[in-house]
Amino acid sequence: MSGARATAAPRLGTQRAPGRPLPAADPAWSADPYADALRAGRGPLFLRRTDGWLLPLDVERWCAEPDPADLEVLGRCEGAVLDVGCGPGRLVAALEGQGRRALGVDVSEAAVAHTVRRGGRALRASVFDPLPGAGRWGTALLMDGNIGIGGDPHALLTRLAGLLTADGLLLVETAPHPDVDERLTVQLTGPRTTPGAPFPWARLGTPALLSRARACGWRVADQWSAHTRTFVALRAPAAEGGPGSA
């Protein structure tokens, strides 16, 4: 990819990002149900909607080694990789093991610690915080439903366009049901825990993601499914200025 190769690679680190405070969602993802699930390597853990609907979270898969669907995504990565909402770090650690430059970003202290223990680099921060290497990342990942971060896909896609190189690659895992398109308020909860603080989230199937991405200037590079999971590859809009830095 010409954009990534022509641009200096971002510096990586493992410290908390300076600048603006962590987002309102941080107390939820740092709460005991999530931290306890990561320590145990298993759930059950759910996102609970205000009407009581529960979305199971696949903690076991997040804490395991990358599966074939993950490996296909990693094989598509270009240049230095930013894993947004890296969780316990299976993808960051796998990229490091392949000799790739990668950094995970997550608001959960437990997730960042887990990533570092697995041999990956990670930063405790929101994707909306100042981040290292803005404008110089070759690839960004939004896996495991992380297109939902912040509850505003347009804002998230706009932010990622500013983090990637011109023509940089965004790999997104979408909801497996194509008709899903919702913005909602949820809480993290386990079977015997009090639900955590409410926070905004979003769920998008592939058609909804493609519509929002095109509206933000992204170009669709590919879409595919693997092992019941669905993915989209997007190319970043052309930058109005040169690469920035945080």
Rank of each mutant, 00 (worst) to 15 (best):
A197W: 04
P198W: 11
P198H: 07
P198R: 06
P198V: 11
F199K: 12
P200M: 09
W201L: 04
W201K: 02
W201P: 00
A202Y: 05
A202K: 00
R203A: 13
R203S: 04
L204R: 03
L204Q: 13
L204N: 04
L204H: 02
L204Y: 01
G205A: 10
G205K: 02
T206L: 10
T206F: 03
P207A: 03
P207I: 07
L209Q: 05
L210Q: 12
L210W: 01
R212D: 04
R212G: 13
A213P: 07
A213S: 02
A213W: 08
A213N: 03
R214K: 14
R214W: 00
R214L: 08
A215P: 08
A215S: 01
C216G: 07
C216K: 03
C216D: 14
G217S: 12
W218A: 12
W218H: 03
W218N: 09
W218S: 06
R219F: 03
V220D: 09
V220Q: 13
V220H: 06
A221K: 07
D222W: 07
D222A: 10
Q223A: 11
S225T: 15
S225F: 10
A226T: 12
A226V: 08
H227F: 09
H227V: 05
H227E: 15
H227M: 12
T228A: 13
T228H: 15
T228Y: 02
R229M: 05
T230A: 08
T230N: 11
F231D: 05
F231T: 02
F231S: 00
F231R: 08
V232Q: 00
V232F: 01
